[in-house]
Computed example of a mutant assay.
Amino acid sequence: MKAAIFVEPGKMEIREVPKPTIQEPGDAIIRIVRTCVCGSDLWWYRGILHHDHNAQVGHEAIGIVESVGSSVKDIKSGDFVIAPFTHGCGKCAACKAGFDGNCPYYKVGSAEQYQAEFLRYPQADWALVKVPGKPQDYTSDMLNNFLTLADVMATGYHSARTAEVKEGDTVVVMGDGAVGLCGIISAKLRHAKRIIAMSKHPDRQKLAKEFGATDIVPERGDDAVKKVMELTDMGADAVLECVGTKLSIDTALKVARPGAVVGRVGIAQKPVMDTNDLFFNNTGLRGGIAAVTTYDKKILLDAVLSNQIDPGKVFTKEFDLEHIQEAYEAMDKREAIKSLIVISDK
Score class of each variant (00 low, 15 high):
Asp151His: 09
Gly88Leu: 01
Phe85Asp: 02
Gly284Cys: 10
Ile75His: 00
Arg31Trp: 12
Ala256Cys: 09
Lys107Trp: 14
Glu322Lys: 12
Ile341Pro: 07
Val172Glu: 07
Thr275Val: 15
Val265Cys: 04
Thr251Arg: 01
Thr139Gln: 12
Val225Gln: 02
Cys38Ile: 05
Ile196Arg: 03
Lys333Ala: 15
Lys346Pro: 04
Lys19Pro: 02
Ala154Ile: 07
Ala150Lys: 02
Val37Arg: 03
Arg15Asp: 13
Ala111Phe: 13
His87Ile: 02
Ile196Thr: 05
Gly180Asp: 09
Ala61Tyr: 04
Phe6Glu: 04
Arg15Asn: 11
Ala236Val: 06
Met273Lys: 10
Gly168Tyr: 13
Leu119Cys: 13
Asp74Met: 07
Ala252Tyr: 05
Thr283Ile: 15
Val265Asn: 02
Val255His: 08
His59Leu: 07
Glu8Pro: 07
Asp345Ile: 15
Ile185Trp: 00
Thr275Trp: 10
Pro135Asn: 10
Gly287Gln: 03
Met331Trp: 09
Asp296Pro: 02
Ala28Thr: 00
Ile62Ser: 01
Lys313Arg: 13
Ala236Ser: 11
Tyr105His: 14
Val304Ile: 06
His201Thr: 13
Glu117Arg: 05
Val171His: 12
Val225Pro: 03
Gly58Phe: 01
Tyr295Gly: 00
Gly235Lys: 02
Lys270Tyr: 14
Glu219Cys: 09
Glu210Lys: 15
Ala97Arg: 09
Ala208Leu: 04
Ile48Ser: 09
Glu117Thr: 06
Leu143Ala: 04
Pro84His: 05
Gly69Gln: 07
Asp222Arg: 11
Leu147Asn: 00
Pro104Thr: 06
Asp302Pro: 05
Asn282Trp: 11
Val172Gln: 05
Arg15Cys: 10
Ser339Gln: 13
Val179Ala: 08
